[in-house]
Design a protein around this nucleic acid. Structure first.
Length: 559
RNA sequence: GUCCCUGUAGCUCAGUUGGAUAGAGCAACAGCCUUCUAAGCUGUAGGUCGCGCGUUCGACUCGCGCCAGGGACGCCA
């Protein structure tokens, strides 16, 4: 309702401005909600922007536009929803809306229900978001946790804003690291039965390798060193990989992260497919041989240096299957490919983009999104971690300690470009300074009011088509004003490919609600007012619930 | 050395394609429960937006140069 009002106003302002002449056809009329309430409900800076080209005092210009606009408004139906137009100091045009405009918008929320907030921004664009894609060589860590939360929520946001988004996990089940994993487990198994081994530094160090060795021995009924040696090396590899994939799937399930697709390197980028793709690149002149290795001439597309794709020992580097995998993603017909990566992979993006260009693909359809690290604080101290030494905080540790709701919220509450401080103590706290509980509490409080009204006073929310003329309090209008921003927030997140604005918005909405609650009684002697206020808080419940659903966080009805 | 990210209140962070008097939350201090969940609300205090120059009606925002912190730069994945 309000987006339409805004669009109509924008076009009227545009017409008024054009009457003055000299307005470029590409000129965009901005109309936004000002930060300060005294500046009205909507504010427009056309006069400021046009003052330069028209060589005219911005305030005078604004007055001229206003005069023309007022006559247009009195003729148009939108005019009823505009209370006043003011010209203010530097040259802003500030609009104040009638309460009718807001009350119309309020009815929209219960009418759309769980669909409130959905927009058409994406116009059906097909998007593939690849994230986590952890090697099956260990459990997921907090680094993965942030990528998992961001990726999962980004897919929800894209789907809520008119895109067709799918999530994908790419399983690196080929290559070197699986052999190293198998070797690690094999050595630990032998060690288990008393064989003295020298455990290499480049093998996986974590304690979980020992646990896996024990499990493997039990499963294969190995009872001594000879038994361990008799098992084919390949079996160690397969067992370890499958076992860790199960661990990863379970980690993700606990964190409520779902994947639409699982792509396996062994299938998507088999040695034959790699050879074929490299041949294609070679025929185009982007692959050459040097020092017994095959190189990809990525510098031709802006990379710092050329990259080895096949080592002199005959094995492919990680880059070779990754090129093939990205070719596969392109071939599946997506309009946008998003790769969510850790900061340690930022050098990776130019290489893959170079490969995409070399294969004749559209690079602008490939977006590498770097998610900065999350550092964990407990008892006011930062916990250090190092994957190499096998010392890391696992995702599961975080989930079991603070819960999935708080875990997800905290991972999402900062912009992805920012490092994030994850305060375990705060996340666990059931107190208002913890934003997750502040938001969930608002939701539970509303549910409690609705229950009480229904059960004890036989009161139900007013219907969506009510004119809501009883809602006049500032606290009430503030709530409506805040709620109608919800679709814009989702659009903003989708455009920026960053969910961070959403948790912040929900915290603000919860705050506006708590203020309203303190000031206005919902269940009141006046039945008419009560019904309208019940509809108002029910709308807040809907927006909170829709927002939390996008974040993958529960909206409790009781706390 | 090259590249990426960051620098805003005591702390953690916002600041929407350059806009009006730079905002929240936490911590601190002072208040508010006979009434729908006090897991809440109200008020006070807190700032050379890292520094300098430039671009213009206007810069936290854009450009250049410094300073400081973090990270990445393998025939590893």
């Amino acid at each position: 309702m309000l987006p339409q009002l805004k669009a109509e106003l924008q076009s009227l302002i545009r017409s008024s401005a054009e009457c003055l002449g000299g307005v470029p056809s590409t000129f965009f009329v901005m109309l936004e909600a000002p930060a300060l309430k005294e500046h009205g409900d909507l504010s427009c800076n056309v006069a400021l922007l046009l003052a330069k080209t028209l060589r005219c005092n911005p305030v005078e210009l604004a007055e001229k536009i206003k005069a023309d606009l007022l006559s247009r408004l009195s003729a148009a139906p939108v005019g009823r929803k505009v209370h006043s137009v003011d010209v203010v100091r530097p040259g802003f045009l500030n609009f104040r809306l009638t309460s009718e405009a807001y009350c119309d918008a309020l009815g929209d929320i219960p009418r759309s229900g769980a669909g409130y907030g959905r927009t058409g921004l994406g116009k059906g664009k097909r998007v593939l978001v690849e994230f986590v894609s952890a090697n099956p060589t260990g459990p997921l860590t907090v680094a993965h946790a942030r990528q998992a939360a961001v990726g999962d929520v980004l897919v929800n946001i894209l789907n809520a804003t008119g895109h067709h988004a799918e999530s994908e996990f790419y399983v690196n089940d080929g290559g070197n690291q699986i052999r190293t994993l198998g070797l690690s487990v094999q050595l630990r198994t032998k060690e288990l039965f008393g064989e003295k081994i020298v455990y290499p530094e480049d093998c996986y160090q974590g304690d979980y390798i020992r646990d896996m060795a024990g499990l493997f021995a039990r499963e294969r009924k190995i009872v001594d060193v000879n038994g361990a040696a008799a098992v084919p090396f390949e079996d160690y590899c397969v067992f370890s990989k499958d076992y860790l994939m199960d661990v990863i799937r379970e980690d993700l399930r606990l964190f409520r992260v779902k994947f639409d697709n699982w792509s396996f390197e062994s299938r998507v980028a088999s040695p034959e497919k790699i050879a074929a793709t490299l041949e294609e690149l070679k025929s185009k002149g982007f692959i050459y041989e040097k020092d017994g290795a095959l190189w990809f001439a990525s510098t031709r597309f802006g990379d710092d240096k050329d990259r080895v794709v096949k080592k002199s020992d005959g094995f492919y580097t990680y880059l070779a299957p990754d090129i093939v995998y990205h070719k596969n993603k392109y071939d599946r017909g997506f309009d946008l490919l998003v790769d969510i990566l850790g900061p340690d992979h930022h050098g990776y993006i130019p290489r893959i983009k170079a490969a995409a260009q070399a294969l004749g693909k559209d690079v602008t359809a490939l977006e590498g999104l770097i998610i900065q690290l999350a550092t964990i604080f407990r008892d006011g101290k930062q916990l250090r971690m190092s994957t190499r030494a096998g010392e890391f905080i696992s995702l599961r540790e975080v989930v079991t300690e603070v819960g999935t709701d708080a875990g997800r919220y905290f991972m999402l509450m900062r912009q992805v470009s920012q490092q994030l401080e994850f305060d375990m103590d705060l996340a666990k706290k059931q107190a208002p300074e913890n934003p997750v509980f502040y938001i969930q509490y608002a939701h539970a409080r509303i549910c409690s009011i609705l229950r009480k009204a229904r059960d004890e006073a036989s009161l139900l929310p007013a219907s969506a088509d009510t004119r809501f003329f009883r809602l006049k309090e500032e606290a009430e209008i503030d709530l409506i004003r805040k709620m109608i921003q919800f679709p814009d927030i989702l659009d903003l997140c989708a455009q920026q490919l960053d969910p961070a604005a959403l948790p912040r918005y929900l915290q603000e909405l919860a705050g506006v609600f708590h203020k309203f609650y303190d000031k206005c009684r919902v269940i009141d002697e006046d039945k008419g007012l009560s019904a309208e206020r019940l509809a108002l808080v029910d709308a807040v419940r809907i927006v909170l619930s829709n927002g939390l659903t996008v974040l993958g966080i529960t909206a409790p009805e009781k706390m």
